[in-house]
């Protein structure tokens, strides 16, 4: 079995971002960037499947600028086998990412594609679902458990009401939720080894995809600030304020 794991380079989840009023965009200068946390979970899951003897090769792919190679290296250091870097100036919208991924999958076939359920920058939550449509294959979003059977995957999903288990035909696209696993840290020897692994470069122009976005961002603003910081001294005080000042109980 071959597994493809798409990964995205995003602002680190610990960073509190700032909107630049002049450029009308999120200020990305000198901001720490990391692999999208959900994608890291996807890489970890692929590695565990391989360690369980059910996968022969894990390929990671990333779309983005030159620095996206670091994100790929990161996944290779965790234990993925080989990388593909699709060079784009920015990270394109989910539909375009899905189209690029579909083209790559057309060239070398994969039995399983595992993605993060959402990237923590644009919070779109679309790419995996879109890819499954373009491939006409099954989709299992928000996975918290993946079991592999001969020609199918049994996937437990986190849904609004609780947990749902479904059985999906192979090949399948799966997206990860937080509780699927806890990603490992790459060890120093593995970081060194990852430097020898191949990363192929792909020019999107060679894929014959019209890279024009269908939705454009007109502006980005800060949300209205919430004025908090009020304190109460005791529970009596709290209950009194909730009842008589705010009128919410």
């Amino acid at each position: 079995m071959k597994i493809l794991v798409p990964v995205k380079r995003v602002v680190d989840y610990n960073v509190k971002i700032r909107v630049d009023k002049e450029t009308n965009a999120v200020d990305l200068n000198n901001v720490k960037m990391s692999i999208n946390p959900f994608d890291e979970i996807a890489v970890e899951e692929a590695i565990r499947i391989k360690e369980g003897g059910k996968c022969d090769e894990i390929v990671v792919v990333s779309l983005g600028p030159e620095q996206s190679k670091e994100t790929i290296r990161n996944a290779l250091a965790m234990g993925a086998d080989r990388g593909i870097h699709v060079k784009t100036e920015h990270s394109p919208e989910p539909l375009l990412v899905a189209k690029v991924l579909a083209k790559i999958i057309e060239k070398e076939s994969f039995d399983l594609i595992i993605l993060g359920k959402q990237s923590i920058d644009d919070d779109c939550n679309q790419t995996g679902q879109m890819l499954s449509a373009l491939l006409d294959c099954s989709i299992g979003t928000y996975a918290s458990k993946i079991e592999i059977e001969n020609d199918s995957f049994v996937v437990t999903r986190e849904i609004d009401g609780g947990l749902q288990t479904i059985k999906l035909a192979k090949p399948a696209v799966l997206t990860t939720d937080l509780r699927l696993n806890e990603p490992r840290y790459a060890s120093l020897p593995n970081i060194m080894k990852a430097k020898q692994k191949t990363i192929d470069e792909v020019d999107p122009a060679d894929l014959q995809i019209e890279m024009q976005p269908k939705v454009v961002t007109k502006k980005v603003e800060e949300p209205p600030a919430r004025i908090g910081g009020g304190k109460v001294e005791s529970i009596e005080d709290l209950v009194d304020k909730l009842k008589n000042v705010s009128g919410v109980i």
């Binding site: 539909l95 899905a98 679309q126």
Partner: peptide, 17 residues
Amino acid sequence: KNILPRVAAKLDVSQIS
């Protein structure tokens, strides 16, 4: 969130989330 992007991709449009 699970269903709509699959429809959007088939219609060749983006989803606005």
